[in-house]
Amino acid sequence: MKIIEVENLNFSYSEEVKTIQDVSFSIEKGTYTTIIGHNGSGKSTIARLLAGLLEKESGTIKIDGMELNMENLPKIRNRIGIVFQNPDNQFIGSTVRDDIAFGLENHCVPQEQMDDIINENAARVRMTKYLDKEPTHLSGGQKQRVAIAGVLAMKPNILIFDEATSMLDPQGKDEIKKVIMDLHKEIGLTILSITHDIDEVAHSDYVLALDSGRLAMQGTPHEVFADERKIRAIQLDTPFSMKMGDFLHQHGVEVEKHLTMEGLVKELCQYRSNM
């Protein structure tokens, strides 16, 4: 079942430059999709359009079969959660507990039910110990986990991550990646992740590659990375295993394209035993 359908989407911030040009794609329910593209290619704009934070110029966006328009916006907002890049600028409450409560207050959840929802979602992102902490006493990774809990508390079925790990240190990046993977597996949420992390892309179900506001490529990671020349043309990086594959080709070892090191080494092992 298609949970997101986008057709001929157009958007621009100013008259001179088109930020999004004629973009069409659809996303299956329960999948993990990554959106890639160099900085300024329009990735974040797409995320904001899907979450109804920006108004499209033309084209259609359908979420869960409902068209995104002013009338449906409140209903659609309940289904889409978005986690942004900067950990500090999306922490609204004065403590972890208050921040998770913020969305619940907006949705008029009765006060008696809030504590249960807060506890449940804090536990999901492993922040139970920090419920009464203020943001100044939390690391970047912890703040992003709180942001995820705050969004989850509103029970969305689509989660968008807009470069949610790009301002974190390696430890924080790992924490957040693990939380996202778990959410995908355990609750079956549809995940849309804007990322530069090639490893995350390799492990996703579907990839959308943007270049100057246009959808340059889409498909499974294998399909997208098969066209190495095009990937380079839109200024994107390839996984190490593919670069290594090129070096091996130069030295007469004909390996296939692999997105992970494990896959490449596995083939090399077979290569060795077959010869």
Binding site: M244, L248, H251, V253, L268, M275
Partner: peptide
């Protein structure tokens, strides 16, 4: 990863070309 899978990779292999050469020798 190569070492774990029984490949012989000397310490002084420090770039992709050297590693590719080293692998090529062993699979051939």
């Amino acid at each position: 990863l190569l070492k774990e899978n029984g490949f012989d990779v000397p310490e002084d292999v420090m770039d992709e070309t050297a590693l590719a050469k080293c692998i090529a020798r062993q699979v051939k």
